[in-house]
Write a protein that binds this DNA or RNA. Sequence first.
DNA 1: AATTGTGAACTCGTTCACAGCG
DNA 2: CGCTGTGAACGAGTTCACAATT
Lengths: 254, 254
Amino acid sequence: MATGRTHRPATRSRGIPEATVARLPLYLRALTALSERSVPTVSSEELAAAAGVNSAKLRKDFSYLGSYGTRGVGYDVEYLVYQISRELGLTQDWPVVIVGIGNLGAALANYGGFASRGFRVAALIDADPAMAGKPVAGIPVQHSDDLEKIIQDNGVSIGVIATPAGAAQAVCERLVAAGVTSILNFAPTVLSVPDGVDVRKVDLSIELQILAFHEQRKAGEEAAASDGGAPAVAARSESADQGPDGDLPAVMPA
Amino acid sequence: MATGRTHRPATRSRGIPEATVARLPLYLRALTALSERSVPTVSSEELAAAAGVNSAKLRKDFSYLGSYGTRGVGYDVEYLVYQISRELGLTQDWPVVIVGIGNLGAALANYGGFASRGFRVAALIDADPAMAGKPVAGIPVQHSDDLEKIIQDNGVSIGVIATPAGAAQAVCERLVAAGVTSILNFAPTVLSVPDGVDVRKVDLSIELQILAFHEQRKAGEEAAASDGGAPAVAARSESADQGPDGDLPAVMPA
DNA sequence: AATTGTGAACTCGTTCACAGCG
DNA sequence: CGCTGTGAACGAGTTCACAATT
């Protein structure tokens, strides 16, 4: 699932399982919605439903953070929002650079989700001289010649790569050399990085292929659907897990 | 993770583990690159390196598909490309619709990765009447009033949601009612769907938050770095896992 | 009475290590 | 001899089920 293996055998700090870390943002989103509606407390059952997981998992997840609930009552919404934000490091400011301002890079720059939680687009960088100076989402694009300086001047530790696949590894190396230690990669390539650098990837084509696999399987099942089990129009299920919360998987294999 | 729970207790078909399915596209990509360079065979070691996994995992993964290698030699590149493509259902055509043609939807429409492997953008749909008729990536945008007809006329079973969060659930329900059974969701919301429908999500904000968590942890470790363990400038490691292989995921709202 | 927090059982995924085969 | 294929050991993650607590 996630990325960067734990360098240093196992800083026993207080190991929160990776799968749990991957779900914290989900809980935080649900909690924020409750907070905006001024809901004071939630039970694990309610919150789990809102986040699309089951309540046992949620309670176990929270147990890694500490005992923030009250038995017989539930969790204080505001308090939990704060605790999770702190745990995720969202109480501080994270300047981010986006490299590769094509269609996708521009879409990311315009994405509102950045601004909201501690993330700030510190700079947009592109290799095309014709782009330099042009504002995208109100931020002037800078030329990649200045990448190192931009990273250092802004104290950037998180970089987003939205370049074509062919340029990604080189960009990645420059980012890392300049001090970036976390990378979100949208280019369809495997990046190789030094120990201590985390890479997460978002790959549209892979997601579609996984869906196609399951889609194909469904088509095959239809034929064999001579037994029970109504086909379409099933009952709405609140539970169907969504995405690789931690990692991967999606539907089931049979 | 994944989605749609197993309807029908357990079609014992031939269970390929979900984690393996999520990696097949990765192998396929590496193999395609080798194929273009006319490399005839690869060892599990070489292919694993190219895909960013370890060789034991790769061999185990392939063992679920069958015995496609030759001991003492390796795997035939072309043959494996075909077998994996077939397993993933990429030997057939998958018409896809994209709903929500904002910055992101437009970027997705322009994304080259679609065309390549069996996926074809059959239609672009948006709720804004002003968009109707405008071509994006050479495809005219259609109004969402016609969503059901578009799905049915094109035999679409895979839908991509790139709308604002508030519209996503409603769009999802219309897609599903019209016959879509696989959804790739870019909106920062938990979608609830009937059994039998697969949802995968891509959430930029979540990915960034996960990176922030690890980034924060690194910062904390620095202070405690009075013992051994050189800080920056570590040796290049081919391994650092990349993202939630199965999954994926994007940003956050919170 | 309600709901959390958690040990224990279980399931899924990864890695080891080597037998089997070309 | 080299490399695949895989049983067996291991580890991570999930679910169960219930004691603890308010």
